[in-house]
Design a protein around this nucleic acid. Structure first.
Lengths: 357, 357
DNA sequence: TTGAAAGCGTTACCAA
DNA sequence: TTGGTAACGCTTTCAA
């Protein structure tokens, strides 16, 4: 089969030497005109550029990398790109990486720690400029040990570990941690709910091990205590961060006859499922029960009623992750950023029926 | 600063030669035990493996690539990872790629053709196994020319162009096209709406240039004509595929006093925005106005009322994209897959008020 | 301003 | 079963 275009070499990619030959110069010269910054005569440069065009040549990125040139890629490791908040972080990472001229590798782990470790190993093999781990994790001594080892091994390969929305490691570990304030966000949100007069607030959590879920639950608890209320433990349910979890949990609560006048979901997705369950049960929101979410995903506005929630600057988080990890020496001391959140009040939270104004 | 762990070489990554030296063997031998399939004595293998562990060694992927070994990455190019349907395709691609041992590079173009071309060039430099372009495009002679050139240039570099949800190219072009049936899906959906008795159906489209939007609009039109109805052109609005577009368009239609009893949105996101605008105007769905979407994103169930829409197998699309593009000779003839869709009936479409049963 | 040659970290061929 | 060496495609001294 015959390729179109001038650049056929029998199915072989054209190399810098092919270009050199065609332009009647040496490979070094081609490299120099492509590099852009070296002194090359105008005539030579033109000839080389023409040859490049005719051959449709692009320099092999791997060869460049091996030779010590080239821009290393960034690696993004997350649970599931399909979660709206993850997707927004991914966008931030991808955009900032592109702006800085880096390519972006992404891996989904589906929550499997083994996969995660495997991916990190691959990223080290790829000489990634940084490996960004996104999303809550199970915080345990084992987690800290494992991550510290990863951080060191990445650092010694000239790369950098970035933890986004994950618990920090021991001081001195070469890692960048960027968190958003789960606890305070949940505190503010729950305080708002309580201020409306609710006393029995159902908490629809994530996995009890997940640090993001834990932080939000701590905020829920703290807001109660700040008002001198001891929340009923029976009101704290755990599941995962999916829409289905919210739906299932709320339906079960209803079936069990649990008494509550408001629901605080660990996630907007969870809230969405819960809302549907509420509607299915013929309950009106916020007339019969109030509902609040967390994350402020774009869809939250289109729920009915529009969802009161906590805004988390996910995209900015992603941008920050790449900005702070790049242009930093691999084994810089650990660095810790905490981003603020704020509650956005819409229509899904109101005073409980029969409450005093 | 002193690195922890045995593998310190003064900040240098350890190489296969470091491992060889430590194990007292040659680099070739190390390569062989790492490769796994060559005959190596048990004793030697053990020694090498220990050295690998002690040095925390991983083979450099770039060097491997240059040497002709190694698994090439897959490249995914899309508009915006934040769109739910894109995210699901991305998940399909990423999962299937991982299953097959490939890494996945992703780039967002934000609809900029120049960026797109630039990314494709980079992917060629990366020797990507395939470049998967996702999402509707502007179909023009210029588009076809450009894509054909890209397809050839990718093919001659041993890579393969995959078009997902984009118009096909001239026969014979080395490209794989995977489409889902926009027109028939929209036809079926609109037929369902018309069957309920609606006669003035507002169409909330995407960009008039976008082929996905066009296909859906064609389905809308065809369904009308199949019933002998000539739809009022004033009822066809265009915007983009965002939630805000739906909100804005519907609000404007209302402001202008446009008469309609049903709304068909080009996208679930658009439908979500439209739904909120409807609610804000005090209109009930489907009591006053029926509403239908397209894509069947998970959220569609949690809209109120749950949204009648068209299901598109996005994740499967992604998996298929990688499966068909891998393990195929680069300049195989063009291949064209058309995936079916089906309408999922929920509660947002009902007969118009005062309609005959 | 240009070219030759060494080097980057692998793998694969050929001998031993 | 092992080691030496060439080769992969590029960049970067070093000389000219």
């Amino acid at each position: 089969m015959v390729r179109k275009g001038g650049g056929d070499l029998g199915g072989r990619r054209s190399t810098i030497r092919d270009v050199a030959a065609r332009a009647g110069v040496s490979a070094s010269t081609v490299s120099r005109v492509l590099g852009g910054v070296y002194p090359v005569s105008t005539r030579t440069r033109a000839r080389v550029q023409r040859a490049v065009r005719e051959l449709d040549y692009v320099a092999d990125a791997h060869a460049k990398a091996v030779a010590g040139a080239g821009t290393p890629a960034l690696a993004l490791v997350l649970d599931d790109i399909t979660g709206p908040s993850f997707a927004h972080m991914a966008r931030g990472v991808e955009r900032e990486a592109a702006r800085l001229g880096h390519l972006c590798l992404v891996c989904s782990t589906d929550g499997d720690t083994g996969h995660e470790l495997g991916f990190i190993e691959m990223m080290r093999a790829q000489r990634a400029a940084a490996v960004i781990l996104v999303g809550g994790a199970v915080d345990s001594p084992e987690y800290r040990r494992r991550m510290a080892r990863v951080a060191d091994s990445l650092a010694s390969a000239g790369s950098r570990l970035v933890l986004c929305g994950r618990p920090p490691l021991a001081p001195g570990t070469p890692v960048t941690v960027i968190e958003y304030d789960n606890e305070n966000g949940a505190f503010a949100l729950c305080a708002h709910v309580l201020a409306q007069g609710h006393r029995r607030v159902l908490f629809l959590g994530g996995s009890p091990e997940n640090t993001a879920a834990q932080g939000r639950e701590r905020g829920y608890l703290a807001a109660h205590r700040a008002r001198g209320i001891e929340p009923d433990p029976a009101l704290r349910l755990s599941g995962d961060f999916t829409r289905d979890s919210g739906h299932r949990l709320l339906r079960r609560a209803l079936d069990q006859g649990l008494a509550f006048t408001a629901v605080m979901a660990a996630t907007d997705m969870v809230a969405a499922g819960a809302l549907t369950a509420l509607h299915e049960a013929g309950l009106s929101v916020p007339g019969d029960v109030s509902l609040a979410g967390y994350d402020d995903i774009p869809f939250a506005r289109d729920l009915h009623p529009p969802l009161t929630t906590v805004h988390v600057p996910y995209e900015q988080l992603g941008r920050l992750a790449v900005r702070t990890s790049l242009g930093r020496t691999p084994d810089a001391p650990d660095e810790h950023l905490l981003l603020g959140t704020h509650v956005v009040i819409r229509d899904s939270v109101a005073p409980p029926a029969g409450a005093p104004l």
